[in-house]
Design a binder for these strands. Sequence first.
DNA 1: ATGTACTTTGACACCGGTGTCATAATGTCG
DNA 2: CGACATTATGACACCGGTGTCAAAGTACAT
Lengths: 336, 336
Amino acid sequence: MKKVTINSVAEYAGVSKKTVSRVLNNEPNVSPATREKVLKVFKELDYKPNPIARGLARNKSFIIGCLYDNPSKSYITRVQSGALEACHKFNYNLLIHPCELRGDELIHNVDQLLTTSRLDGLVLTPPFSDSQELIDFLKTQNIPFARVASALEDDTSISVCSNDEQGAYELTEHLISLGHKEIAFIKGHQDHSATEKRFSGYQNALQNHGIEFNEGLVAQGNFSYHSGADSAKQILDLKPMPTAVFASNDYMAAAVLKLATQRQLRVPEDISIAGFDNAPIARHIWPGLTTIAQPVEEMTRQAVEQLILQISDPSTEVYQKVLEAKLITRESTAAK
Amino acid sequence: MKKVTINSVAEYAGVSKKTVSRVLNNEPNVSPATREKVLKVFKELDYKPNPIARGLARNKSFIIGCLYDNPSKSYITRVQSGALEACHKFNYNLLIHPCELRGDELIHNVDQLLTTSRLDGLVLTPPFSDSQELIDFLKTQNIPFARVASALEDDTSISVCSNDEQGAYELTEHLISLGHKEIAFIKGHQDHSATEKRFSGYQNALQNHGIEFNEGLVAQGNFSYHSGADSAKQILDLKPMPTAVFASNDYMAAAVLKLATQRQLRVPEDISIAGFDNAPIARHIWPGLTTIAQPVEEMTRQAVEQLILQISDPSTEVYQKVLEAKLITRESTAAK
DNA sequence: ATGTACTTTGACACCGGTGTCATAATGTCG
DNA sequence: CGACATTATGACACCGGTGTCAAAGTACAT
C-alpha cells in the first residue's frame, strides 16, 4: 500500500499539485469539471491530506492547548469534554497541559510549551484565566487565547464565564428561605476569581434579607476536599453551631457532610449543607447535595469555538459571554 | 523579533544547516570545536527547533494518542496523568480521544483519527485494551500501541496491567476473615476484562475458604454509579440480606452505601461494603470505603514509556508487566 | 477581428527540518 | 613522504503541502 500524497493525486488526475490544493481548500477559480475530476480521484485513491505538511506550509499546528491546575478531577474532565467537542468540530486537536500557577516558572513553562509544540491557541481555565501576568505574556507573544470562568475585566480577549455571584446569591437565598440565619461559609482558593464572586453573592444575599454578616462564620478553604475537612472541623466546633453551611464547591461540602456524619449529626435535620458546581459527587453521596450547576462543558465549548474562529480570522469580534448558573436542590438542605 | 530557524543559526554560526542538524540530534562526526560553536549560537539566538518541520521530514508527529471510554472520571484523569508524565519525559505530546467501544464505527473512527492526526502510537485503556478487533486493525496498519490493564494474552504487544484477580482475592479474604459468609458481589462492565478477573478472584477466595458460591448473591453492574444503584437495590432487597457487599469498583460501592444509608442501615455494623480502585470517592464519603488500590498512573506511565521506546526503536523487546494491587482498609468493613 | 477583463492553470519557490552522497580535511602507517 | 582509511563538512534533494505570479484560455464589447 503506497502512500497517497498530493503529488500522486495530481499525477493521477493529470493536473498540477496547486490545482489539487485548490480543490482541497475549496478555493475559487477551479472549473467545475476539474474540481469534479479531482474530487473523484480523492475518493478513488482514498486521499487524506497530511496535516503536518500543511502545518509547516501554513505555520499552523491545528492544535489547541488547555492549561489547568485544578484539584477537581471532575471539573477537568468536564472542561476537556467541552474543549474536545469544539476542537473536533473544526478538525483541531487538543493538547492537555497541567501545570502549576505558583512559582516563577509559570511563564517559562508556558513559553517552553509554546515553542516546543507550536500551539495555535490556548484555553485558560481557572486559576490561569485570572492570571494577569500570564495574559500579558500571551499578548506580547501574540498567542491567541480564551479565558474560561475568569472574572478579569478585559474586553480585548475572549471570555466565557458563568454567573458565580448570582448563583451564590440564589443558593444563600434558598437557605434563608428555609429559615436559616446562621449560615457558615467556606471560601475557595485565593487565586481563583470565583472565590470572591461566590463570597460576595453570599454576603449580598444576607444583607438584602437583613441578616448581619458574621466574619466568625467564614472559613478559608482552597477547593480541595482536604481543605474542606479542615474548614468543616472549624465550623462544626463553633458554639453555637451554625444551622447551615455553604461550601464554595461540592468537594468541600462533601467533606463537611462526612465530618457531620462522623459526629452523628443528622443532615439536614441538625444542619443543612450546600455546595457549588454540581460535581458528580453531589449526587453520589447521601444525602445528595443542594448545589449550583455550572455549565462547565458549555463554557469551555464556546470558549474554544470562539478561539478557533479568532485564529482563523483575527478580525473576528472578541466574544464575551456570561452563562447562567442554576440552583439544584437535593436532600442536604431543609427547613430549620 | 524575527523567527530563529535552522537557517539563521547556520548562517550566524558560519556552518551548513546540515551541521546544525547534526548538533541538534547529537549525531557523530562533528568536531568538538564546531559543536561547541553551534551550541553557543543556540543559546545566543535562543533557538528552538520546529517540531512540525522535523515531523514532516521524519514522518513523525511526536504525538501519542490516548483512547478511552470509561465512566469513571477519576480513572481517566489518573490515566492521563501517568501518560503525560511519560510523554513529557521524551518530549512527546498527548492527544486525548474519547470514543465509544460499541458500534461498527470504532475501527472507522480510529482510522480517521490516525490519518488526520498522524499519531506515532496509541495507548489503549479499558475497554479498548481488550478489543481484539481493534488490536488486529492496529497491527495491520502497523501502528505501535500499548495496552493498559488488559487481560488479553498477546505477547507481541506491550502490556502493563495490575493483578486484578489477586486484589479481588485479597479483598474477599479480608471480608471472610471478618466473619462474613454471605458476601454479595456486583460485577463490572461485560466488555472489560477486569470484570471477569475480579469476579474469579472473589470466587476463588470463597472456594479456598470453604464457602459455597451463591449465584443469587451476584448482581450485574457496568462500573457506573447508576448501575451500582440498581444492583444495590437488588442486593439489599434479598432475604436474608447479605452481611457484606463487594462491588467491582468504588463508584458502585458508593451507590450501595448511599442506598444502605437511605434505608437507615448502619455501615459497617449492619452491612459491610467494599469497592475496588481506590478512587477519590472512596475516602470522600463516610464511612470511607475499604478497597483495592490499583496503580493506575504507574501502569499508564510505564505503558507509554515503553510505547515511545518501541517507536524510536522497533527492535526493542516487547514489555509485559503485572503490577501489584494493594488492599486498603477503611471504615466500611467490620466484623460481622 | 481586436482589445480588454476575467477566469483557470501550472511552474516554481518556500515552510524548516532530515537523508544521501560527494568532497575536503585529518589521521595512521609503512 | 605518499597511500589509504577515517572523520568532518556541505550541496542538494526531499518530506507534502501552500503562496506568488506569470501565462494561457475564455467571454464579451467594440
